[in-house]
Amino acid sequence: MVSIVFAGVGGQGVITVAMIIGKAAVMEERNALMTELHGMAQRGGRISVDVRIGDYRSAIIPIRSADLLVGFEELEAVRNLGKLRKDGIVILNRRRVHPVSMTIRKMDYPDDLIREQLEKFQVIDVDADGIAFKLGNKRVANTVMIGALHSTGVLGLREESIIRAIQGSLPDKLWEVNMKALEEGKKIVPLQAARTK
């Protein structure tokens, strides 16, 4: 049984990624639940998606119960930290989307707050946008994130199911670059683990 929170901003593809994980679980005949929360904005509002794999009835993850938090945006990751277990893992794309209410007041992005809050957890930094840029298609950033998420081993899903689930959500011509993105994503966790040792 595993619970994962995905958090980001509208337009980042948060729901698509969460759905790929859910579908991969269902392909393995596992029970999966997913629920999303977003406000009235079509773009730029906050989004969080809860995915639970296993014998659950509640799609909403209780406070301090998530095993993983996948952050697509720094502030939104911090906003959802309360859902994460004390020993939970944060997988974070270092992307910043400034809230308009801060911009109007000419406030800088709250780096100190973010650092302070994230310190309490094990954080895996993923430069998903940078890697995607190097691969020549910035849209594969989310596949890099999936690779990193998978390589934690916490999901307990077979790589083959994840690949099939990604495949199901893509046109064929984007297939190759997404496979490369997945491979790059998979390298991140072992690399960072080696570094901390």
Binding site: R43, G45, V78, M102
Partner: peptide, 13 residues
């Protein structure tokens, strides 16, 4: 346990 606080709001836009 209450959620981690302090994150500035992100109004819908």
């Amino acid at each position: 346990v209450q959620s981690a606080g302090g994150a500035p709001n992100r109004e819908p836009v």
